[in-house]
Amino acid sequence: MATRLDVNKTYKLYVGGAFPRSESGRTYEIADTKGRFLANAAQASRKDVRDAVTAARKAQPGWAAATAYNRGQVLYRVAEIMEGRREQFTGEVAVSEDLSSRNAAAVVDAAIDRWVWYAGWSDKFAQVAGAANPVAGPYFNLSVPEPTGVVGALAPQSSSLLGLIEVLAPIIVSGNSVVAVTSQDRPLPAITLAEALATSDLPGGVVNLLTGQTDELAPILAGHLDVDAIDLTGMAGRDTTDLEVLAAENLKRVLATPDTEPDVTDPPAGPRRILAFCETKTVWHPKGR
């Protein structure tokens, strides 16, 4: 019997629900932690960022208009699809992060559980963060958190799957759409996540994933005037003054950079990351008699 030829996967970007190559045609080599070649990944360019933001902007109103309950259902569905790809995730996390397969499997379980954890928040965070405010007049005064719009996100550099989900899920659960730059050197689980997202019920464009050089893409996202907020987690420990100056031009919400990459093994204490990308709307309504 003839030797079977290898069928290797082409790792591409995830933009607007489709899997395009980089507009620039560039790719870069992905190696494991010991420097051995794993795959070529698409190296996103300025125009890929532009296209991703356009797709995100287009998808956002429809996603935000879905009921909170429905968004929670859709996110739970993503977790279901991930569950079916657990072995693929485990393999990729193991080579990307140099973990034993048992440890990698534990990370994947945690990642899926985290997705479910955030899915559960969809119809609850507004009750935690919203309020019926007592005011000195005959009015109902209600504050509710609303999604800010299109969010740019720099995913953590070392935690390739769990860290990415810890960034992505809280952004979209409230009705934002996101353009995320994946871990620069460990992007493979992110692309597999994109495949899970594409086959779930999440509308195309709500999540857009770009693989490439974080330093090249971050200023473009931070300076883009059609991006409403930016999560700088992926720049942990680095000086982000320039990015914050760029972000100030259109008053982006900035989730400030931590000194070290946050440990995301356990779920956070509350919906802090969700609320970081929400704006509070306050409504005054006459009470009548």
């Binding site: 532009r50 933001v53 902007r57 473009i220 300076g223 883009h224 005037l225 059609d226 760029l246 031009e249 259109n250």
Partner: peptide, 9 residues
């Protein structure tokens, strides 16, 4: 300006 613009403006 070298920066992507927004339809909000």
């Amino acid at each position: 300006t070298g920066r992507y613009w927004t339809s909000n403006r």
